[in-house]
Design a protein around this nucleic acid. Structure first.
Length: 217
DNA sequence: GCGACAG
DNA sequence: ATCTTGTCGC
């Protein structure tokens, strides 16, 4: 795990961190994953928050390990700098795992970001693990609506480049927005999100992490 | 210049 | 993200 510090104290410093780490992102990697982790954070008013990580068997989607870490928002909410709010708590939760996941499925964006370095890229570079981002609402770029069938997708284009995909994970259900985080291709990221959504709109690991963060044991 | 803007 | 009732559907 890379060091988090020095922690940015301003918007300019945070943007500089992103611009510096962006060069370390790798856009290709493995195409199958034995252990898949979902990450999410739940806010409990003020600055208090709970980060949850749930690791699933990549084949059966059965849970393998669940951890939580309580903390506080580490930065004000600024679109594009969202990662700095949640990173310390998410990293603390990851450090509590006794297993090492082979893929991180993050709640938010990766490459599809104003500076090409969203939360999924940041977590991937810090941990060195393959990572992808799944957003619930559009952020940067433009895209056509994908067809109504599960598996249909359209490219998200930002400043002339494809930075992600709008992907229909269930028939007639709003698409999710998939982007590369680290050490993964867009094709593999898309394939993984589909594998992880047998029933619901959002990937199973993220759904489970969301539930755990809301209802810690 | 102004508004919009992941969670 | 969160504040919140009812309602529709499996």
């Amino acid at each position: 795990m890379k060091q988090l510090h020095p922690w940015p104290g301003s918007v300019a410093e945070a943007e500089a961190v992103q611009d510096r780490l962006r060069g370390e992102v790798e856009l290709s990697g493995p195409d199958s994953f034995a252990l898949v982790a979902g990450l999410d954070v739940h806010y409990r008013g003020d600055d208090a928050l709970t980060a949850a990580v749930v690791v699933l068997d990549g084949g059966t989607l059965e849970p393998v390990e669940e951890v939580v870490a309580h903390g506080e928002a580490a930065f004000p909410y600024v679109p594009g700098l969202f990662a700095f709010r949640e990173l310390p708590a998410l990293v603390a939760a990851l450090e509590r795992l006794t297993v090492t996941p082979d893929l991180l499925v993050c709640d938010g964006y990766g490459l599809a970001h104003p500076r090409g370095f969203g939360l999924a890229c940041h977590l991937g570079v810090l941990t060195g693990l393959p990572a992808l981002g799944v957003g619930k609402t559009p952020f940067v770029g433009t895209h056509e609506p994908p067809g109504p069938e599960r598996g249909a997708w359209t490219p998200i284009v930002h400043e002339g480049a494809t930075v992600g995909r709008a992907l229909r994970t269930q028939r007639e259900v709003k698409p999710v927005y998939v982007s590369q985080g680290h050490r993964i291709s867009l094709d593999v990221a898309t394939d993984q999100v589909l594998r992880l959504t047998p029933r619901y709109r959002l990937p199973e690991p993220v759904r489970r992490a969301d539930h755990l963060a809301r209802h810690p044991s």
